[in-house]
Computed example of a mutant assay.
Amino acid sequence: MNMLNKIFEQIAVLDTGEKWTVSAQDLLISRADFHSIFVYLLREAEKGLFSIDQQTPKNPWFEQTTLTITKN
């Protein structure tokens, strides 16, 4: 949960319209953990505080390890 708190703290300091790109490498977590956080953030984005830009990986057999969050 500490990782989620850090992510939400970073989102809170963003200005409206500002974007933040985060990756599994930035957070020093595994792809599986990143995927779990990604799914959670997708659900939280439905509340409207921020949106997530999903970029389709060039090779579909690789999991996505980067996401861009835009503060609404």
Rank of each mutant, 00 (worst) to 15 (best):
N5S: 09
N2R: 11
T65C: 08
W61L: 07
A45H: 15
F62C: 00
T16L: 14
R43Q: 13
N59V: 11
I52W: 13
N2L: 04
W61S: 15
L42A: 06
A12L: 09
N5M: 12
K58V: 06
K58P: 15
F34M: 11
Q10E: 13
A24F: 04
P60S: 12
W61F: 08
A45D: 14
N59H: 13
I69R: 02
L67P: 12
L41I: 08
D33H: 01
F50S: 14
S30M: 06
T66D: 05
T68R: 13
E46L: 08
H35E: 13
T70F: 06
D53E: 15
A32T: 10
F34R: 11
K58W: 11
L67I: 12
T16N: 10
T68H: 01
Q10H: 11
A24Q: 03
W20G: 00
S30N: 07
L67Y: 07
S23H: 01
A32V: 05
T21K: 09
L14P: 09
T21F: 08
A24P: 08
G48I: 09
K19D: 05
L41R: 03
R31G: 15
S36G: 06
F62M: 02
D53G: 07
G48T: 03
I69P: 03
W20Y: 11
A32E: 14
G17L: 11
S30F: 00
Q64D: 00
T21C: 08
W61H: 12
D53S: 13
I52H: 15
P60R: 07
F38I: 00
E44G: 03
P57K: 11
L41E: 04
D33V: 09
L28R: 07
M3T: 10
D33R: 10
L28K: 14
S36E: 14
I29Q: 00
Y40P: 00
I7H: 07
R31L: 11
Q55Y: 04
T70E: 12
L41Q: 02
T16A: 08
M3L: 04
A12Y: 15
G17W: 07
L14F: 07
V13M: 09
E63N: 09
Q54F: 01
I11K: 05
F62G: 00
A32R: 06
A32F: 15
A32Q: 15
L42S: 01
E18W: 05
D53P: 02
V22P: 07
K19W: 05
S23G: 03
L27W: 00
N72K: 04
F38M: 06
F62I: 03
H35M: 13
W20R: 03
N2Y: 10
S36Q: 15
S23E: 02
K47F: 15
H35Q: 14
N2D: 10
Y40I: 08
F34V: 15
T21D: 10
G48S: 06
F8K: 12
D15I: 07
L42P: 04
L67R: 08
K6T: 09
N59A: 11
A12P: 01
R31H: 10
Q54S: 03
